[in-house]
Design a protein around this nucleic acid. Structure first.
Lengths: 341, 341
DNA sequence: ATGAAAGCGCTAACAC
DNA sequence: GTGTTAGCGCTTTCAT
């Protein structure tokens, strides 16, 4: 069943049917009714594919995240969904699993499917995928991970501020041997996260120890295994800051296994404030990320970009100043940090 | 940049370019190379929209769930993604928010976008959305919520078994006043969840009390407010079983607020076994749902359905026996249930 | 092994 | 107000 058959049944032309489908005012009341009746009783479904081919708009947005299993991205996704749904956009969700190859493949797929735009949290600071999005001229915004050597529309928090706040809180509570657990990153440069950590140490005149600057995969397993490893190596620390709450959960798990009590034997501050953080045992002290706003603002930004795009031209991401939205974070004190003397 | 321009640059016809794009063997080695070179240096992106219009396949699957914020659906989604990604399908994710209207609207949107199939966890047992999918002849499988009066391909667990197992565990531990928290459902009939609960009570010769059969929205807030309400009404119970772990978290929250200790003052058993259940305080005793398999099997089932579909015909869901896959559940004992004397 | 041409279902000038 | 027509970018017979 297509527009042509409907036209025949209604005794009008394709254009007329198309007009009523698109709520054009250029159609008489009774013709409209006649056509609408036919459409309803025939169970006709417009073919958006054909429409998209013609109008060069798909009303769908691609979203690429490293791990939908992480509540952090969940919350972001909710923010994205909120604004997109209201505007009639669908989301094509892609899970890169922190795999650059997969990320790139998805970017390609989405581009080929002619999504109207892409929201991406890249796995790395110089993502091949976002470089290509730029090249292909498709509107996009990146969130969470700023790209080096590439000025893009961006919505982020300052990761160094997170670790700074977290480390400072521990320092204020008398901890001097603080473990920092970051994600592995392929870049040579120091990550923002350890930069903030270092800054806090400096303010307290504490020399950083290399063995306390660690990296782990950003999930429960990552946190678990790093603590186990360090315990085997007899590395000493009384506090730990983690790149995300999931890693903190892994730390909890390891602590339990090792017979370490939190916060008595080990203080930990997370990063994210996932919904379940407050229900952990003990409730997790953490840095609250504006997760929902991250998604919400990203989507808004993308939409404005799409709307301002001149007709059918590819989007030129190198022209004009990119918009950078930086969102604030704050410390949420719960029960996983204990004062030391 | 399109196939026509590539053809011109390479000095061949559109058909030839199309052939190399589709890895047809009917093209000479050197022509292929020549075309490939042009494609690479021009940064040409095939237009899947146009292709889809022609071949009537989009290589995308729609997924409709009531709440992506619930880790249960997350895990299911991971299972779905696993099999779909391997086959080169994209996922269009839709969040119905337990709203029948929205569910229906999404079904329509997905159908119009000509997704190759749909996986849906309907909000209700007689979803207008799935009835329409049937009518529209698009391949789909429903999971988690069986439809009354409509034989569909299905992958589920037996909800009555969940509540039965949960209630029985409480009964075995000496509890006789057990609260059941189900989701609200518009149907007149008793839900599966309370059926299993009732069955367990019957085996222990305990008469059900209407005030202990409650419904709440399937999230933290739902669990929280129902406990608060019942507390105000001085309803007495020592154990509670919940339709999902998130509700159990809400129960935890209310208990804390009310000064009730779990499990000393109140025993609770959840349902789902979300990843964080074991990290709650106290670790939650719950019924483990095969979440990942639920998604995995649903996707597999859908794919086989799509593959068996005869050419371009719409899918007739009324012909032949629908496949029903029933997955097992089991009790995971942790620390939220205490023996009573 | 390659090209010409028809057509997928729709929209949007343009004519009337 | 309505119809005619020419594509959108691709695949796929059917010739050659």
């Amino acid at each position: 069943m297509n527009i042509k058959e409907i036209a025949k049944l209604a005794g009008v032309s394709k254009s007329t049917v198309s007009r009523v489908l698109n709520n054009s005012s250029l159609v008489a009341q009774d013709t409209r009714k006649k056509v609408l009746d036919i459409i309803n009783e025939s169970g006709y479904l417009p073919n958006s594919i054909a429409r998209s081919l013609k109008v060069k708009k798909t009303k769908t947005i691609g979203v690429i995240v490293p791990d939908i299993g992480n509540p952090f991205y969940f919350e972001v996704l909710r923010g994205i969904e909120k604004v997109l749904d209201k505007k009639g956009f669908n989301i094509m969700l892609c899970n890169s699993e922190y795999d650059e190859e997969k990320e790139l493949r998805y970017a390609y797929l989405l581009a080929a499917k002619k999504v109207d735009g892409i929201i991406c949290a890249p796995c790395s600071e110089s993502s091949k995928a976002v470089q290509n999005l730029c090249k292909w001229g498709i509107p996009f915004v990146v969130f969470d991970i700023p790209q080096v050597n590439l000025a893009t529309n961006l919505v982020v928090v300052d990761h160094s501020e997170c670790s700074y706040l977290a480390a400072k809180h521990l320092l204020e509570n008398g901890h001097t041997n603080i473990l920092s657990i970051d994600v592995p990153n392929p870049q040579k440069i120091e990550s923002k996260f350890v930069l903030g950590y270092l800054k806090a140490l400096r303010e307290y005149n504490i020399l950083p120890k290399p063995e306390l600057i660690q990296k782990a995969s950003p999930d429960i397993t990552g946190g678990y295994s790093i603590i186990k490893k360090l315990n085997n190596q007899k590395v000493y620390f009384t506090g730990v800051i983690t790149i995300c709450d999931l890693v903190a959960v892994g730390v909890y798990k390891a602590a339990k296994k090792l017979g370490l009590k939190i916060p008595d034997d080990l203080s930990v501050v997370g990063n994210d404030d996932i919904p379940l953080a407050r229900y952990l045992n003990p409730p997790l002290t953490t840095i609250r990320q504006p997760k929902y706003p991250l998604g919400f603002r990203s989507a808004k930004l993308l939409l404005s970009q799409i709307e301002s795009k001149s007709g059918t031209e590819p989007y030129d991401c190198t022209q004009g100043q990119p918009t950078i939205i930086k969102l604030g974070v704050r410390l949420i004190q719960r029960c996983s940090v204990k004062r030391r003397n």
